[in-house]
Design a protein around this nucleic acid. Structure first.
Lengths: 185, 185
DNA sequence: GTCTATAAGATGATAGAC
DNA sequence: GTCTATCATCTTATAGAC
C-alpha cells in the first residue's frame, strides 16, 4: 500500500468516527483497529490526536464547499442559488443522517484550549456567510429587509435549521426555513 | 452537612464542569475533588455519571424557563415579550460566557445510545417553540409571514443566533436577529 | 451517609525491532 | 514506513470499614 493510501485510510476512518461517535468518544485504539494499521503508523503520519482532528476539519471544509459549488453549478440566477443552498443543506443533512454541522459539533465538544480548532470553525462559518452575502448583493429582492439583515436572516435560518434538524432527526426546520426565505426574497 | 446539601453540591460542581469543559472531558475524579466529597458519596446520590448528566439537564431546563418567566414578567404585550426574549437570550449568553446552548452542546457530544438525554433536549426545544407560538398567536403583526412561518423564523433565528454567538464569542448575531424580528413583526 | 482503597479497563503516546 | 510491546495515566464504578 502506498504511503499516501495509509494516511488517507487513517483520515477516512477517523473522520467517520469523529462525526458519528464524537471526537472525545473516539479513541486512538478504535481508529487503528478499524483502519487496520499499526499504532505507530498513525503517529508516523499524524503528530497527535489533535493533529488528526485538524486534518479532518480542513478536509471536511474543502469538500463541503466543493460539493456545494458542484450542487449549485447548474442553477441559473442568484435568487435560485440562494434557495438551492437550502436544498444542498437538506441533501447533505440526509446524507450524514441528521447528526448536525461537522464544525458546530466539534466546537461544542472540543477543549477551550484548542484554539486552532475554533479558528477553523470560524473560517468555515465565515466563508459560508460570505457566499450568502455575495449572492444577496446580486439579487433584486423585495426589500422587506435591507441587504445586511437579509444576509443574517439567511445565514441564521440555515444554522438554526441544521441545529434543529439534528435534534429532531429530520429536515422539517430547513424546509420551513427555505419557505421563509422564498417569502422574503 | 445535611444530605441534600451534599447532593446539591455535587450537582452544582458537575453542572459547572459539564458546561465549561464539556461532559466527556469531565471525569468523576475532578467532580469529587472540586466538590470536596468522597468518591462513594457521589455514587450514593447518583447511580452513574449518566444519571448525573440527566439531573443536570433537568435542573438546567427548569431554571432556564424560571429565569425567562422572571425576565419577561414586567414586559407588557406579546410583541414586546417576543422582542424581550432576545434580550433574555443575550443576557444569558453573556452570563455563561458565550459557550452556547446547554442542551445543544450536550446533544453534540453525547453518545447516540443515550436516548434519555436526547429526549430531554427535545423537551427543552419543544417548550421554547411552544412559548414563541403562544405569543405569536396573540400578537397583531404585519403579516409579511403567516403565523406558522413567523413562529419558525423567531425560533430558528434564536437557535442560529446562539450557535453563531458561541463561535464568535459575542452577541452580534442575536442582536441582528432581534432587529430582523422587529422588522417582521 | 461518608469514607479510603482498589478494581478492571481504556486512554494517548513512545521505544526499539525489522 | 510499518510493526509489536509497553508506558504512565486516567476512566467509571464497587467493596468494605466506620
Amino acid at each position: 500500500m502506498r504511503e499516501s493510501n495509509v494516511k488517507d485510510k487513517i483520515l477516512d476512518v477517523a473522520s467517520r468516527l469523529f462525526y458519528d461517535q464524537g471526537y472525545n468518544l473516539t479513541g486512538i485504539n478504535q481508529i487503528i483497529e478499524e483502519a487496520d494499521i499499526a499504532r505507530a503508523s498513525l503517529y508516523n503520519h499524524f503528530d497527535s490526536k489533535t493533529d488528526l482532528l485538524l486534518a479532518y476539519l480542513e478536509q471536511t471544509h474543502h469538500r463541503w464547499f466543493e460539493e456545494m459549488d458542484e450542487f449549485l453549478r447548474q442553477i441559473p440566477g442568484p435568487r435560485e442559488k440562494l434557495l438551492a443552498m437550502f436544498d444542498y443543506r437538506i441533501h447533505r443533512q440526509q446524507k450524514v443522517k441528521y447528526k448536525g454541522c461537522h464544525f458546530s459539533k466539534i466546537s461544542a465538544e472540543a477543549s477551550q484550549h484548542e484554539i486552532k480548532v475554533f479558528a477553523l470553525v470560524r473560517v468555515h462559518k465565515e466563508r459560508l456567510k460570505n457566499y450568502i452575502s455575495h449572492l444577496v448583493h446580486q439579487v433584486e429582492h423585495k426589500g422587506t429587509l435591507d441587504d445586511e439583515l437579509l444576509i443574517d436572516t439567511i445565514f441564521l435560518l440555515q444554522e438554526g435549521g441544521i441545529a434543529t434538524g439534528s435534534v429532531y432527526r429530520n429536515s422539517q426546520a430547513l424546509k420551513n426555513a427555505k419557505r421563509i426565505v422564498e417569502t422574503l426574497l
